[in-house]
Design a binder for these strands. Structure first.
Lengths: 73, 73
DNA sequence: GTCAAAATCCCAATATATTGGGATTTTAGC
DNA sequence: GCTAAAATCCCAATATATTGGGATTTTGAC
C-alpha cells in the first residue's frame, strides 16, 4: 500500500462516484493541485490531507499487522 | 482511525515488541522527536514518515470503504 | 476534427512537518 | 527515595507539503 496505489484507489473510487476533481477538492477543502498530485502517486500528503480526501469519497484508513523486516530488535 | 488512535496503536505495538523510541527512530530513520509527537497523537505526519514507522514495527496501512457523508454529489 | 470540460502543469508564496541539540521530566528497578 | 533509562519538551534551522492563479494538455461527446 504505497503512495502510488493509494492514488490509484482514490482516483478509481472518485470515478465510481462520477465526480470530478474540482468537486472533491471543494467538498474536502483540499486544493485541486494537491489532489492531482496524490491521485498521480506523486504526492506525499500529510495524514490530515489524505484523511480529508478519503473521508469525502467514502474510504477509510486502517492499520493491520504484517511481517516484520527484522526479527530481532 | 484518527491521528490519536494511530499514535496509540503505534505505541502499543512498540511496547509489545519491547523496544524503546530511540531504537525505532534509528531503524526507521525517523527522528525521535517526530516519533514522540506521533505516538502522542500530536503529529500530522507525511504519509512517508508514517509508513516508515509502521513498516519498522510491523504494521501496515490499508484502505477500506465506509459510509459516505454525502449521498448526493 | 470541433468544442467544452476535465485534468494536468508551472510558479511563487505560505504553512507546517522534520530534524538535531540539549535540557527536563517520568518511569521502573533496586 | 536513588538512579539510570526512557520519554518528553523547547528551540532554531531546514525541508517540503499546500495553496492559488493562470496556462496548457487531454479526454470524451457530438
Amino acid at each position: 500500500m504505497d503512495l502510488e496505489e493509494i492514488g490509484k484507489r482514490i482516483k478509481e473510487r472518485r470515478k465510481e462516484l462520477g465526480v470530478d476533481q474540482r468537486t472533491i477538492s471543494e467538498l474536502s477543502g483540499v486544493a485541486v493541485n494537491t489532489l492531482v498530485a496524490i491521485e498521480r502517486g506523486e504526492g506525499n500528503p500529510r495524514l490530515s490531507t489524505l484523511a480529508e480526501i478519503l473521508d469525502t469519497i467514502g474510504l477509510q484508513l486502517d492499520l493491520h499487522p504484517k511481517k516484520l523486516n527484522y526479527e530481532t530488535m
